[in-house]
């Protein structure tokens, strides 16, 4: 069952990457990046359950923080330059 969840998540990464490549505007790409990073966090959580290592959850937490900061930095850059 858990492997089914991993497979569905990987398929959804692929579908989101199509929008990342196509996206007519820059902000469309940022939205796709946001969704891909959320899916990445959940895949890391599933890996932690499969391999039974608690340290992976710390990695997921750090990835959540970095994704949030990255999205905010890119949007501010788009709005008014650096």
């Amino acid at each position: 069952m858990i492997y089914t969840a991993v497979a569905i998540s990987l398929v959804s990464v692929l579908v989101a990457l199509v929008r990342f490549v196509k996206g007519p505007e820059k902000v469309d790409r940022i939205v796709a990046l946001d969704v891909v990073s959320i899916i990445g966090i959940s895949v890391i959580l599933l890996l932690a359950t499969i391999m039974k290592r608690v340290i992976y959850i710390d990695i997921a937490l750090v990835y959540a923080i970095l994704g949030f900061i990255g999205v905010i930095v890119v949007s501010r850059f788009l709005k008014r330059g650096l």
Partner: peptide
Amino acid sequence: GGIFLVVGSLSLLIASIGIY
């Protein structure tokens, strides 16, 4: 827990189909 995991990943799939 397995049911929760599968439904959650289906919701992620809905998110990516939606942005497509």
